[in-house]
Design a binder for these strands. Structure first.
Lengths: 263, 263
DNA sequence: AAGTGGTCTAGACCACCTA
DNA sequence: AGGTGGTCTAGACCACTTT
């Protein structure tokens, strides 16, 4: 592992194809990433300076800068002003579990269906009132529903929405407003932000029955609170997943360096 | 909710302070983000064109472009070539649960300690062999350890590392190599990439005893496989967390718009 | 003083979409 | 055709670190 920048290492690498449709900065980012994957630049190594890269690849400083910024954003490099740019050692903290997969389930309308078990107006109990920051007894719309993927129940959802007499409470609409919209992101929304918390829980009898699993069993619970543009809570709810259908995976480090832009 | 770009909306917003130490692109990104948070630009709205922003804020096209790219990367905007740049509706899929918090636990050496329960050379059983892609019976180093945060056991870790006679197997080193290094990211590493899977599990008796919790209880399990630069597995292991100490939260949408760069 | 990254300019050309 | 985003140039100046 060398600490000095090694310009000669660039000699054997690919060059930038100016006729290609993938932009120069993306090509350069990919080349640098491949060099790291091949071990040409190892963890802790200093990269050739921007000026050297500009010369070697015959691009402008802005293009080099952009390529490097992408790799910094992706966590592969660190830049220190006045010192140089270095290959960042892999850390586990970079790992992130995304809900993207959950979103994909919802956008697949062919295989997904939602079944509303119950929807009624109720008065907030202590816990609900506390979460939604409303007085106890304030009216909320309570909904219970099951999300099926090819006839298999994979999510059980319970949600309290603050009752607003100005909004129409049509069951069919509720289905769309609170779920489909949140996941697919179509149209406008009254929601400014949201917090989601993931817990591991033991399913209770009701949940196990609805999700058609045998007790005792552990699964994920996703609790969510959404806020409007005045930062007031709108709704509070929780998804409980079928344990064998809901998995989260994350990757760290260098792999699958494809042709995609920004990769 | 308007669909046409509304240049007049910019009139009342802040301007860019050229004497400030925060760069112009970051200031502009923040201004646009605040405008969205204030509801000046709503979900689905078209932003003023780059040319309009250039004029209005008296910056160069590259600066506007950079500010917009940041907000696109952060998931607040979408750009469509030839059409315009639009405010992206909030979607739940953007939410990501990061292991950053776990990393912070490890870097806090004052409060964290690691206790090795066992370390021995063993022969791979079927499952281990399959995960590490080695023949059954191949030697591995098996380690069990507990991570304490202020004398409270918060993580139980079991790991199989492929035995390599070239590497020294000093207990003290193992502690550093496989955990501290992975989390803190100091020094170089033989690891090129890793996969981490999160599951919800019922703790078994051994796990519950070590983590000092009462059964039955559900918790998170983080399974990991790390690969070397030839994409061969190096180690396979799993963390089981103390359920009340290990939580994951994620946020979506606009909030906490501070002074930080890139925010 | 020399080298590094960080920012920024003031244009240019292109591809794409809409009218 | 005119507007939009997407890319890129060839420099410039600054702040910082190292020698």
């Amino acid at each position: 592992m060398s600490q000095k920048p090694d310009e000669t290492a660039l000699g054997k690498t690919k060059s930038i194809d100016r006729d290609s449709y993938t932009p120069a900065y993306a090509q350069l980012a990919r080349i640098l990433k491949l060099s790291m994957a091949d071990g040409i630049f190892k963890s802790g190594d200093q990269l050739p300076s921007e000026a050297q890269l500009v010369k070697h690849y015959s691009v402008s400083p802005m293009t080099v800068r952009r390529a490097i910024n992408i790799l910094i954003d992706q966590g592969y490099l660190v830049a220190e002003q006045g010192r140089g740019t270095f290959v960042k050692p892999l850390t586990i903290g970079e790992a992130a579990f995304k809900l993207q997969e959950l979103q994909e389930i919802f956008s697949d309308e062919e295989r997904t269906s939602v079944n509303i078990l119950e929807t009624r107006i109720t008065k907030a109990d202590e816990r609900t009132a506390s979460k939604l920051k409303i007085p106890i007894g304030h009216r909320t719309v309570f909904i219970r529903r099951v999300i099926y993927l090819e006839n298999l129940p994979i999510l059980y959802h319970r949600e309290h929405i603050i009752y607003d007499p100005k909004l129409p409470i049509v069951e069919a609409e509720l289905e769309v407003i609170s779920l489909q919209r949140l996941f697919s992101g179509t149209g406008d929304s009254m929601i400014k932000s949201g917090e989601i918390r993931m817990d591991a829980t033991l399913l209770n009898e009701e949940e196990a029955k609805i999700l058609k699993v045998k007790l005792p069993v552990a699964s994920f619970c996703l609790q969510h609170i959404f806020y409007d543009f005045e930062n007031k809570p709108i709704s509070w709810g929780r998804f409980v997943g079928r344990p064998d259908s809901l998995r989260f995976t994350a990757r760290v480090g260098l792999q699958n360096i494809g042709d995609e832009t920004y990769e």
